[in-house]
Amino acid sequence: MANFTLNINGKQQTVDVDPATPMLWVLRDHLNLVGTKYGCGIAQCGACTIHLGDVAMRSCMLPVSQVGNQAVTTIEGLSENGDHPVQQAWLEHDVAQCGYCQSGQIMNAAALLKANPKPSDAEIEGAMNGNICRCATYVRIKAAIKTAAG
């Protein structure tokens, strides 16, 4: 066990955990930030996507010891009032069915648009291919990303 001080959603938070603990479980079990979801544990489904700096990361395989003081953003911290353009576009297109994967989809899409504000269809597909939606709302996810891109 060891202490780690993390910069999460703009707040300093200290946790005492095994250094190998993935950020996913630090967020969910220790910091009560449960918007980040467990889906596979092997970085194959994208449900656990968070931002490290501006980059989308799969938190299920990211040991807490590797995070250091990099800024971590989770779905809870993406915007103050749930009004990030990607979140708004998700509501406009009423994307969700079960909704379980959507935190990860939104975090991945937000990182994509930060890096590439006007992605082509192929670029959207390429960036989003790591995020599984079992309800298969892909058509709406893509439409929402295009709306958010303006």
């Binding site: 969910r28 079990d29 009560n32 930030l33 449960v34 918007g35 980040t36 979801k37 467990y38 989770t74 779905i75 809870e76 993406l78 749930g82 979140q87 998700w90 509501l91 009423d94 969700a96 909704g99 379980y100 959507q102 935190s103 939104i106």
Partner: peptide, 27 residues
């Protein structure tokens, strides 16, 4: 009509079984 839980979903609010938690809960 829009999904009544749309806002909760896009902001990552606890609503699923895996999110359930009470004091003293074990895994």
């Amino acid at each position: 009509q829009k999904n009544v839980r749309g806002k909760e979903i896009v902001t990552g609010k606890p609503m699923f079984g895996v999110d359930y938690k009470v004091d003293g809960m074990l895994i």
